[in-house]
Design a protein around this nucleic acid. Structure first.
Length: 262
DNA sequence: ATGGCTAACATGGTTAGA
C-alpha cells in the first residue's frame, strides 16, 4: 500500500466507553488513518479525550446524553470541523465533518426509523432529505468528498441475509432506499460495490438469536465517495474480526483505501 | 410467540437500537 494512501474507516461502536479496548486492539493492526464513529453515547464533557490521544489520535466529537453521538478520529491533522448539518436544528447528535489531505469527510449516524410508518420513520426520511441537501452543498466546495457511517439502510437485497423475511421492513423499505438513491444520484458511489466481494457480506448482526453464528446480518454501514474520490478507491472491505471479540459492538468496522497521488 | 441481547440511566425497569 502506498504511503500516500488514505485509509478511511467507519464503525458504529455502540458506546465508545465500553468499546475503548476494542478500538485500541483494532487500531494496533488496522492501517486506518481517519475513522468515523457512531453511537458514542457520551456527552462531550465525558468524551475519553485523553485515551484517544494516548492511542495516537486527534479527535473531534459531537455527542449527547445516552443516545447517538459521533466522532471523527484521525492519525493526522483535521481541518474545518463542523458539527451537525448547518441550517438544520436537530437535537440529536448525528453528524460531524472534517477535512484531511483535502478530502472532505462527513461522518453520519442516520436515524434507525424504528418501524415503517412511525414518527421515527418520518424523522428518518426528513433527516435523509436534509442530508441530501447538505451533501449537495458540500460537493460544490469539495470535489473529493466521502460520506461514511451507519446509514441504517441496506442498499439492496444482496445486503440482506433474508430478503423475503425483511421485505418492506424498516432498513430495507422502498422509501428508505429511494432516499439513499437520491444521495447516490448526487454522484456518490457505494465503494464497497466497486470491488468483487464475497456473497453475504454484512456489517451488522443482531446480538440476539445467534445471528452472528448464522451470519444473519445486514450491510448498513457504508462508505460513499464522490466521483473524483471514488475513482481513486483501491479497495473496500468489512473487517468482521472485532464483531467476534468479547463484548463486541453489534457492528463491524468498514474500511476503504484511496490513492491520492497524481 | 413482538420473544431473543446489549447499553444508558439507574439501582428496577424503561427506552432504544436494527
Amino acid at each position: 500500500m502506498s504511503r500516500d494512501a488514505l485509509v478511511l474507516g467507519t464503525w458504529n461502536v455502540n458506546s465508545l466507553r465500553v468499546r475503548l479496548p476494542h478500538l485500541e486492539q483494532w487500531l494496533a493492526t488496522s492501517a486506518v488513518n481517519v475513522l468515523g464513529l457512531q453511537e458514542t453515547k457520551t456527552v462531550d464533557g465525558d468524551f475519553p479525550a485523553a485515551e484517544i490521544e494516548r492511542l495516537g489520535l486527534v479527535g473531534s466529537w459531537h455527542g449527547q446524553r445516552t443516545y447517538n453521538g459521533v466522532a471523527l478520529l484521525s492519525r493526522e491533522p483535521v481541518q474545518d470541523v463542523v458539527r451537525g448539518m448547518p441550517g438544520y436544528t436537530d437535537e440529536q447528535a448525528r453528524v460531524i465533518a472534517g477535512t484531511v489531505r483535502g478530502v472532505r469527510i462527513i461522518d453520519v449516524y442516520v436515524p434507525n426509523g424504528q418501524s415503517v410508518g412511525s414518527d421515527k420513520y418520518a424523522y428518518k426520511l426528513e433527516w435523509l432529505a436534509r442530508l441530501r441537501d447538505y451533501v449537495a452543498a458540500e460537493l460544490e466546495r469539495h470535489p473529493r468528498l466521502a460520506v461514511v457511517g451507519d446509514y441504517n439502510i441496506a442498499p439492496a437485497d444482496a445486503d440482506v441475509h433474508d430478503p423475503a423475511a425483511w421485505a418492506g421492513q424498516v432498513l430495507v423499505s422502498d422509501p428508505e432506499r429511494t432516499a439513499l438513491g437520491a444521495l447516490l444520484d448526487l454522484g456518490l458511489s457505494d465503494v464497497f460495490r466497486r470491488f468483487e466481494q464475497a456473497e453475504r457480506t454484512f456489517s451488522w448482526w443482531d446480538y440476539r438469536g445467534g445471528s452472528l453464528r448464522r451470519n444473519a446480518g445486514l450491510r448498513i454501514d457504508l462508505i460513499l465517495a464522490s466521483g473524483d474520490l471514488a475513482a481513486r478507491c483501491t479497495g473496500c472491505w468489512v473487517d468482521a474480526g472485532p464483531r467476534r471479540w468479547e463484548r463486541p459492538s453489534d457492528h463491524a468496522p468498514v474500511v476503504a483505501t484511496f490513492d491520492l497521488t497524481g
